[in-house]
Amino acid sequence: MMEVRFSGFGGQGIVRCALITGKAISLYDDKYATMTQSFGPEARGGACSSQLVVSENRVLYPYVTVPGVLVALSQEAYNKYEPELGNGGILIVEQDLVKQKPDTGRVQIFPIPATRIAEELGNRLFANLVVIGFFAAVTKCVTPDAVKKALPELVPGRFLKANMQAFDKGYAYGNDLMATKAGADKMAEVCEAVE
């Protein structure tokens, strides 16, 4: 079972992130996903969050308790939700929008300039799809095929292609980062052995 929290500010497509990912997982990846979202006056304008509980079996408790993955696309969201991320958890941050605390090694940090990548594709609104692509590469929680099948009803038709591209960009960026990270880890191992 994996608990995931997407967070940021209203307008970044945070709820859409969980909707797209949840639909992809539960309809096309043959797993169970339950999606909930912050619902109340605090969701408007300020920190916004959506949650997914993903499991091989039926999800019983629908809410996130100790997230294993946190996606933080704004400073406020990072400040609010980073402390609750479980030890060893995966932290995905929008590196241009979040100034992080010094890395203590408590969690695994995966930074991405998602908004900048989206702007290069022509519109910062695609940033959430860049993030989903990155999320898919880093967590392996959802397959690219499933996300692409899930997209059509959840983004406007005229932007479908651009959103697919944004997903691919984020996914490639994630894979590159994972490869580099794996290379670095291997190098560290070799160095340790030599020492």
């Binding site: 969980a18 639909k23 539960s26 996903a33 339950t34 999606m35 909930t36 979202q37 629908p62």
Partner: peptide
């Protein structure tokens, strides 16, 4: 209830 009403599932 609100929880079931607002949660998304398959």
């Amino acid at each position: 209830d609100e929880t079931v009403g607002h949660m998304h599932e398959k």
